[in-house]
Design a binder for these strands. Structure first.
Lengths: 155, 155
DNA sequence: GCCGTTGTTGCAACTCATTGCAGCAAGCGG
DNA sequence: CCGCTTGCTGCAATGAGTTGCAACAACGGC
């Protein structure tokens, strides 16, 4: 799973912290604003690894500020996605699933029978990406890929 | 869309007709029922090629019977999917997309920039299916696969 | 042809996500 | 510190899809 030599994924590495702190400036640089609502969502995201659904994020924001409005959250997520800070895909049921730094570039594999899920790492996804690149000149967004089927043990 | 006179891709081949007519018996064989609502949906599906969204199907059923109820349609689609008569995937926005006989076994490729879509045929998908089969023993449901990215001309 | 079993329907309520719009406020210039 | 511009928020309405439940009706049996 972890490539040799890579440091164990600890809670918040220094460069992750830096990445989150730069969000404010990255917004400003585009003429966008740093509002309390965005601050709250970024705070929640910075404590998140892997993937979360949109509804999850709303709930977590509401824990901190019960007046959180869904449309604001979704709109902020759109903005953050433009900045490349999060990416979204869709679960097996089509619901939104957000991928958070620093593991944004991966896809998902879901077993329809047992419901288990695995990540398709960048390395693993390379075959898929390469084949569509070669055949069609198509640039696959791996983070948006969700593949459903049956896993080894459920077959 | 279709210039008149030119026969569209042959509306219904003999074996397709047979497949649709057998639906009633296939339901009965499982102890399920052949109701007017199911008859209506099957009628609509039998005139459909490729893929349609759930909302599309509801609208088309309503054209014939304005009293059509969404939940009934979705539930019937679930049943038909169990029978292997339709399959569903999700569009780039996560909305349902049903694949109808006889072209059920294909995936989709969507360009995020221009919105164009292509089918991933069974042959083309073979690479993807084979690589996950080999690496994980995972049986991919190609008809549920939607891959998003940027096409050659939009890059 | 009527009856009973049980799969289905219709409906209402609910979840997730999106959109239009009017009022609000972040952040810049003075 | 103040005012202005314009990006953002809150809200309400909408659309897609799901679920629980009571009433209904297919259809096999009598």
């Amino acid at each position: 799973m972890q490539p040799d030599g890579s440091p164990p994924r600890s809670e918040s590495r220094a460069d992750d912290v830096a990445a989150w702190e730069s969000v404010r400036d990255r917004l400003r640089a585009r003429g966008l604003r740093w509002t309390p609502q965005r601050r709250a969502l970024v705070a929640v995201l910075s404590q998140t690894r892997g993937h979360v659904t949109g509804a999850d994020l709303i709930e977590r924001c509401r824990e901190q500020d019960p007046s959180t409005i869904p449309s604001t959250v979704y709109r902020t997520l759109d903005v953050l996605e433009d900045l490349g800070i999060v990416r979204h895909g869709h679960g097996p049921d089509g619901r939104e699933e957000y991928h958070v730094l620093p593991d944004a570039e991966h896809g998902h594999l879901h077993c329809r029978a047992c419901g288990a899920a695995w990540e398709i790492t960048k390395d693993e996804g390379a075959t898929i990406v390469a084949s569509l690149e070669a055949a069609r000149g198509f640039a696959v967004d791996l983070s948006h890929v969700t593949i459903v089927g049956r896993c080894r043990s459920c077959r």
